[in-house]
Amino acid sequence: MRIYVCVKQVPDTSGKVAVNENGTLNRASMATIINPDDMNATEAALKIKDATGCQVTVVTMGPPPAKAMLQELIAMGADDGVLISGREFGGSDTFATSQIIAGALHNLGIGEDDIVFCGRQAIDGDTAQVGPQIAEKLNLPQVTYAGDIEKDGNTLKIKRLLEDGYMTVEVKTPCLITCVKELNTPRYLTVKGILECYDKPITVLDYEALKDEPLIDKTTIGLKGSPTNIFKSFTPPQKGSVEMIPGTAQEAASALAEKLAKKHII
């Protein structure tokens, strides 16, 4: 039994964000982190490993430096990593990305007992699309927004969180599950893990390795092939028309109420 966890290295958008002339993100100038939901996905896999001793493989598509992230996840407890990396893959939209990742997973082989975990969404794009699209390409059943997972042999009972409650979904392996932060609290790295992570294998899959994968349609990958294109990107303008109301608390409150009444806002 093997669990694949699909993870992504993302720019840390909580701080200042640098934008290039052409409106794309200047990734090089920004700190990167492991996408938060992917940490929960990794933890979900490691919990199953704790119980069953299965193999946990972390998989990412990204530039070569993303290898460091895989090492960190191995130090957390994963057994090995797969880095899907190639110029031809760069600039892929979610459709293209999921084809490539699905192709790579197919190449690695998905057995009857296996599970693919993804984070719900990545904070750079917030699309939540890649998980379901991989599932479709691999013809696996999917359960998204997993907030609780119970596993009994090949049957999983998953609490799928909704806006107004939840539903419990039963699914059998092999399947794909996307995880939300409510699912668990990711564990810390251990010293032992850090010391050993450099000895664990990281496989690199490039275009050459994947070009004959039947799941990858070569006309719809990369920047050129992706079905969706950025037509225009722009920064929203500052509104900047605020009317500051001066004075003491009493004066300001009184002036504000008067303005609101005059404009029939109240």
């Binding site: 909580s14 904070i123 750079d124 794009g125 225009k232 990107s233 722009f234």
Partner: peptide, 17 residues
């Protein structure tokens, strides 16, 4: 749609499909 946590807006098209 907003991208990168609202720091950027992007207009996307799907011209071929």
């Amino acid at each position: 749609r907003p991208a990168f946590g609202g720091h950027l807006m992007a207009t996307i098209i799907c011209p071929r499909f």
